[in-house]
Computed example of a mutant assay.
Amino acid sequence: MDVAVAMAGFLVSGSWILNVAGAEVTYFLAAMGAGLAVLGNAAASVLSRKPLLTTAADRITLIRAVLVSCCAAIVIPALFGGTGPGVPVVVLGAAAFLLDAVDGAVARRFACESPAGGRLDVQTDAALVLVLSCAAVPIVGPWVLAVGLMWYAFVAAGWFRPELKRTLPVKRLRKVIGAYQPCALLLALTPGVPGGITTAAVVLALVALLASFGRDVVELEQGHRKWTGRHSGTELVN
């Protein structure tokens, strides 16, 4: 039910936004497809749960996913036109970013934290950063896509290196770096901000993200070697 409401919410709001913007038919279809791809990923995360349950925090995260989907729909015509997406993406993106603090607070308040909810939250965060990165291409340059694609590259690497799928301990610095990514991209997308400031902010975001993921990879690999060593030692003793 919650997924169906989210889908309906995007179809109505996304269509309205694109109609108001006067998007051509080709751009309209591509934009709605991009938005549905974003929301479809969130929907698949929820529908794959067993049992199929959603919490109050999940509903807030789904609202965030709808906002990110609307951002994606706005970005597509802007990319084809080679122009910046304008204020609407900044407003919707900022709302999706701010709600990230709300769903976590609700999960803690009502004791409904779960690994499934955490995955949905992380996937929505990653989708927001990717969409904002795409939106920033006409402003900053194609290299900004590295910011948005980094999480997906890390996940893809886990398909070939299962050690990278291991759970990492929660660290405040990782959260700070994660929160800085959409902040830097939203700054870059805000009209009137000098180009030097936007470029510096996004470069810092990319450097911090590279350092964070690099540290995580090293930590996961070291943890795997320690676990393998203990496991091998146990086998020898037995």
Rank of each mutant, 00 (worst) to 15 (best):
L130S: 12
V87A: 08
T26G: 12
R119C: 05
K226T: 15
W151G: 00
T61I: 13
W227K: 12
P77V: 07
C70R: 06
K226Q: 15
E235Q: 13
L52W: 03
V66M: 09
P51L: 05
D58Q: 09
D2Q: 01
V237F: 08
F97V: 00
L18K: 05
I76G: 01
T124W: 01
V140T: 08
V144M: 09
G84M: 11
T199A: 13
C71T: 14
K165E: 10
A57G: 13
A107D: 09
H224D: 14
D125E: 04
S69D: 11
S232P: 00
I74E: 14
Y152W: 13
V217I: 15
W227A: 15
K165R: 15
P77Y: 05
P142E: 10
K165Q: 13
G93Q: 06
M32Y: 05
V202G: 07
G192Y: 09
F10A: 02
V38Q: 08
A8L: 13
V66Y: 04
L120V: 11
L99N: 04
T83A: 05
L53M: 08
P115E: 12
L36N: 13
L130A: 14
Q181G: 00
A188S: 14
A126Q: 10
R64L: 10
T83F: 03
P115Y: 11
A4W: 00
R64G: 12
D100K: 02
F28G: 07
A116G: 09
L210K: 02
G33V: 10
L186A: 12
R174K: 00
T190Q: 05
D216G: 03
R108Y: 04
G158K: 04
A34Q: 11
A156T: 07
A105F: 13
P142S: 06
G158Y: 08
A4N: 00
L185S: 14
G148E: 10
A96P: 04
V25Y: 03
F10I: 02
P194K: 12
N238Q: 11
F154E: 07
V106M: 09
Q222M: 06
I17A: 14
F160D: 01
